[in-house]
Design a protein around this nucleic acid. Sequence first.
DNA 1: CGACGGGACGC
DNA 2: CGACGGGACGC
Length: 348
Amino acid sequence: MAVRRGHNKYLKADLQEAYEMSNGYEDHMGGDEGKDAKTNLIVNYLPQSMTQDELRSLFNSIGEVDSAKLVRDKVAGHSLGYGFVNYLNPSDAERAISTLNGLRLQSKTIKVSFARPSSDTIKDANLYISGLPKSMSQKDVEDMFSRYGRIINSRVLIDQSTGMTGVSRGVAFIRFDKRAEAEEAVKNLNGQTPPGVTEPITVKFAANPNQVKNTQLISQLYHNQSRRFGGPLHHQAQRFRFSPMGVDHMGNMGGVNMPGNSSSGWCIFIYNLGQDADESILWQMFGPFGAVTNVKVIRDFNTNKCKGFGFVTMTNYEEAAMAITSLNGYRLGDKMLQVSFKTSKGHK
DNA sequence: CGACGGGACGC
DNA sequence: CGACGGGACGC
């Protein structure tokens, strides 16, 4: 318990040295780039408004900064709230950690630590855990997972609703140092039942923020539509029940009970998506053809990798048909997409 | 060749 | 509380 924690702290310096000697590190860094391990910092929990120049400026007050990089969203360009600062002098990096770590900036408390050597083995190592006993603290959860690797950070979500202050939601995030460590934790802990309870926990890779945003947007759209066209509103709802395009535009499909159609639109099946496909590619492909109300990339529950297919719902038949005609056979990456109206499960 | 979803994702 | 992996022989 407390012993383990103290032990980990003592290991910090050793771990840093271990990175410098690791294969992944030597493999794609040149000889004198090795100094990066002692000069390069990662800065987390930056205020949203902070610019790259401001980041550099702040850290330059400690010593001469070689480079400062604020990480931004690739397409939208906004700050992702973290960045990298590389000093010329290792002693300045040390001083930056001791003086700037924990600094409060605009209601944020920034975190300053040595950056791990850049490598693709450390990416996608964040896990989402649910079904945890509410009695398990952050430390309890860490103790359960730490045997599979080095934990970079962890968080147990707390119920915010009134009267439940401080109560765990039974959901946690744990970021491992290496993706392989996270994979081991999924393999060994997913579906396991902790001592003293009866329900198993779920351990899987966390969705990335873009996936979360898309999911929330879709959910928003769904609820808006439900409120407008169905559900508890009875007065005058009937007259708005049908598509604005009218039955005529459904052509000979009107009245046919096919799985591709539903009251909420026309469901389209897309096959041959790549492993890393995400919702944004579906929005981009189908959006130009008309009203898209829902997109979904089907992923493996544990790995979060696309299983090769997805669904798009479009409001209007004509637009959906045009999208299918245009996009069926479209080459996405190295694969030819197959696009059609959704059929029912069990029939091929 | 492969093939049709669906609980929870940050206090 | 909170987005931990960028960009890297170039005009």
